[in-house]
């Protein structure tokens, strides 16, 4: 027997001993985990992909805070960005008797679909996704957000002098499709063009900034970013180099203060409002699984516009009226926003 194989055996034995020792010590603590019993209290768990201080996950956190304050929910949240951990996060919450588990992003739909049948007493929802089970129903905010940004596109088309707009996004339909809505609104004025720039990394603020500067050099005078933190870079570029000729539209949250002289308006997505409706139904027991719950501009309070008062001379009452008129037409179905192929 060689020296090396002896070493291996020794190492294996020692580590095996250590591991079994560890397992032995912790055995008593393992008891109270699995329980499918119905929860006495209303508990909501949130699984989110990024820090709760950023725009996207912050919305979801705000939603569960509201559930705590208004529905008396006991809340907890966990950040899971790593695909191999999705399922565990869902089953962790469910096995602890949570009433509702929210996955904040379409990427969680596979995990929700797989985990939900094992925990029939827990309701599951994800923000985005199109799968469902008896106790899992995703909400789809995209159709309404495409409509809302369509209206912003119509407004921006009136402000644009060059007829060129640029959008900045990530390779993900939840961020990309809303800008397709903006495109259709902006290009509803003949001759206007919109180009879309896909960024590699939603954390690379510098890349967002440079992309915006390139688009400005290319003549775009309306910029809109839906690209997580990289979108902050776009607004910085507009704030620093935009002067009084390049304007931006804020997304997801109210971003007017990030470039106060250049953001015409923001179109905050009131995710708390949408999720709150889901939580309400989970508490009442009226939660409906088995199908996607789509939101459109007809759902009051979910899609909003915050106009930048500092730019009131550009965003005139006439323009605001145009936005209202467009929204009315979208609600009635007179205008429809197409899904791009």
């Amino acid at each position: 027997m060689s020296k090396v194989s002896k070493q291996i055996i020794v190492v294996m034995m020692v580590v095996a001993l250590l591991l079994s020792g560890c397992a032995g010590v912790s055995a008593p603590a393992a008891a109270p985990a699995e329980s499918g019993a119905p929860a006495a209290t209303f508990k909501v768990g949130l699984v989110h992909p990024s820090p709760i201080t950023d725009a996207w996950s912050g919305q979801a956190y705000a939603a569960i805070e509201r559930m705590r304050d208004e529905l008396g929910a006991e809340i907890a949240n966990v950040e899971v960005g790593d695909p191999a951990g999705y399922e565990k996060a869902f089953s962790d919450f469910a096995s602890q008797g949570y009433t509702l588990v929210i996955g904040h992003g379409f990427q969680y739909q596979d995990a929700a679909e797989k985990v939900s049948p094992d925990f029939p007493n827990t309701y599951f929802t994800t923000v985005g996704g199109f799968k469902s089970t008896a106790n899992y129903a995703p909400i789809d905010l995209v159709p309404g957000y495409m409509q809302a940004l369509y209206a912003m596109g119509v407004m921006a088309a009136q402000v644009s002098k060059t007829g060129k707009a640029a959008g900045f996004t990530l390779e993900n339909p939840a961020t990309k499709l809303p800008l397709e809505g903006f495109r259709q609104g902006f290009e509803s004025v003949p001759g206007h063009t919109f180009s879309m720039i896909v960024l590699r990394d939603g954390n690379d603020v510098g890349a967002g900034k440079e992309a915006a500067l390139q688009a400005m050099a290319d003549g775009a005078d309306i910029l809109i970013a839906n690209a997580n933190l990289a979108g902050d870079g776009v607004l910085q570029a507009v704030a620093e180099q935009g002067g009084d000729s390049v304007f931006a539209i804020g997304t997801i949250g109210n971003q007017n203060s990030k470039a106060p002289k250049n953001v015409l308006a923001s179109a905050p997505l009131n995710i708390p409002q949408a999720l709150f409706a889901v939580a309400q139904s989970a508490k009442d027991g009226t939660f409906e699984g088995g199908h996607v719950r789509p939101f459109t501009v007809n759902d009051e309070g979910v899609y909003q516009f915050v106009y930048n008062e500092e730019l009131a001379d550009i965003v005139t009452p006439e323009l605001k009226a145009l936005v209202d008129e467009t929204i009315a037409k979208l609600k009635s179905g007179e205008i429809t926003v197409e899904m791009p192929q």
Binding site: D201, D204, V205, G206, D232, Q236
Partner: peptide
């Protein structure tokens, strides 16, 4: 340079 001269903030893994 990336955080204070470029992005004016820190973002996790921003060195990319």
């Amino acid at each position: 340079y990336l955080s204070v001269a470029y992005a004016n903030q820190f973002v996790e893994n921003m060195v990319a």
